[in-house]
Design a binder for these strands. Structure first.
Lengths: 128, 128
DNA sequence: CTCAATGGTCTGATTTTTCATACTGGGTCC
DNA sequence: GGACCCAGTATGAAAAATCAGACCATTGAG
């Protein structure tokens, strides 16, 4: 049985399909936001850029283990979703700076909640 | 140049490497928590289980598009990280129920922040 | 002249993820 | 006897992610 293709659902603004109460969270619609902010180095990039704008090379140096290709890709993704802003200067050698947009800055409350959760429960996490 | 292998860093409890101020978030340590709660259907599962415990088959029915293998894997992962609790009953036919642990319930504040962010910015997200 | 530096792109290979399908086992229904 | 139910596991193939390394164009340093 083929069952992997899901056709996109359409949602009303305040629908909370399958959730209880007005506080509940609409799960499937969520996936778009999840995909936008998770990804191999996205959260790490956002956390670093909180400090201020940074050039590509400097960002690369602060993320040991990231491939140039990967970083390019993640930054492009973040820029496409309006989370970071890419400023390319027409200089030689080229200079490109990345900074958080307002949407990126507004991720902080969520990241802080995530951090609080981590501090409380990281001892029981089995993932490496 | 081989640069993909990162050796695990060790952190003090309150270290916030490369972050500004006491509110800042320690990026690399974060990855463990990120991996524990993201993943193809994890957040969706948590959101559904907020309503109450559910059997495997029912969970599967509520996540159109998920493979049996995938669901098994994600649930095992969530259980290993202590986010959901797996209750297997020795009956015929077998019955297995999944429910949120306290750690799972405590994810809600973060999920709510994520939802608020999504409601504010989803219009600009390009990901499908 | 040669080399390094920047922020990428491109290529082909390898690794990882994800899939569809088939199978289990004991009870129950026909 | 045969089919179905449930909650998985096993398998091999297909698809996607990720990698290392080469390349680009330009300038300045030695």
């Amino acid at each position: 049985m083929k069952n992997q293709t899901i056709e996109p659902r359409v949602y009303d603004e305040d629908e909370c399909a399958g959730c209880t109460g007005p506080e509940a969270i609409d799960i499937l619609r969520f996936q778009r936001a999840i995909r936008a902010i998770t990804g191999k180095w996205k959260i790490e990039i956002v956390c670093i850029l909180v400090e201020g704008p940074l050039r590509f090379g400097e960002l690369r140096r602060r993320l040991p283990g990231v491939t140039q290709h990967m970083l390019t890709e993640q930054l492009r993704d973040l820029a496409n979703n309006g989370i970071v802003i890419r400023n390319a200067f027409a200089e030689i050698p080229p200079r490109v700076e990345y900074e958080l947009s307002q949407a990126g800055i507004d991720l902080m409350p969520m990241l802080r909640e995530m951090r609080d959760w981590m501090l409380k429960y990281e001892h029981q996490l089995t993932a490496p």
